[in-house]
Amino acid sequence: MEPSVARPVGSPISRALEHKLNREFVAVGLLLLAFFVGSRLSTQFLDASYLLDTTSVYIETGIIATAMTFIIISGNIDLSVASTLALVACVTGVLHAEHGLAMGPAIICGLLLGALLGFFNGLLITWLRLPSLTVTLGTFALYRGLAQVLLGDHSVSNFPDWFVGIDSIHIARTLFHNPPIPAPLIIFLVLALIAGAVLHRTVLGRWTYAIGTNSTASRYSGIAVDRVTLLLFTFSGFLAGLSGLIMTSRLGIAKYDMGLGLELDAITAVVLGGTDIFGGRGTMFGTVITFFLIVVLRTGMGLHNIKPEQQMLVLGLLLIFSIVVPNLLQRNKR
């Protein structure tokens, strides 16, 4: 037996931070760097309210990424979130526009449907003992397929006025002379705060880490692994549904191809934020920081007329960079 390499003594929390924040520090560094570069290149970039408003465009990614953080830490993956988003948007739209259901009840139906779709993923995973990758790859196609069957190439657009334009609602100057903050960002921040507290401070959060670390040993320790998995996928589906409603409100229409490829953006935010794709490690902080990093980068590049495809190239490079650098640092420590 070899002794472990000596490490500084500290409280569990400071040690955990040291352990977990390794990757997060890279993300924070990149975020600061992106701000610096962006501000040098464009004066518009330093306009706080402009920057805050641009977050609305990506807010669905951020909301989904909070649930995805749980999913990935638990050693799973959910590829069906963007399809869930589209199906919930379409069904809600059809319920309201074609079946005359009032918008309020339609929203509730949409949220329930999102949870149900996530629950269905969880059922297939836990009952049939299938890997989440396989199951959600299937429902990824299935859910968007259903949306397309439902609406075809049409879009639903006759939503009530109060529902449309959630991103134009702002929480105006109040306490700190802050610039007006768009409502979607508030929703995201509140969700991230709650999700972070649950992940890092509750029994459920600890179980999530335990299952992602070793699901067999977790089961032998008396954790209801299947129930937790089911719950996490239901939560993921619910937030995907919520994102679908927010996107519908922002765009004013519901269409089957909404949020195409959004699941990969969400996974990117989570993994770039330091969560181990094999489960067991990661923080909500990392996901949130990385989400803002992606927003800043995309906004900055957008201001310079860099096409979305080319933006993808930069994000791809970043992802690889963020994985390679901490690994190299880790290796040098030994």
């Binding site: 569990p12 335990a210 670390t213 070793n214 040993a217 008396g222």
Partner: peptide, 16 residues
Amino acid sequence: QHGLLLSMTIAENITL
């Protein structure tokens, strides 16, 4: 494989 969560702390293992 079955008894411990190797990458988690002693305390986290004991209270699981």
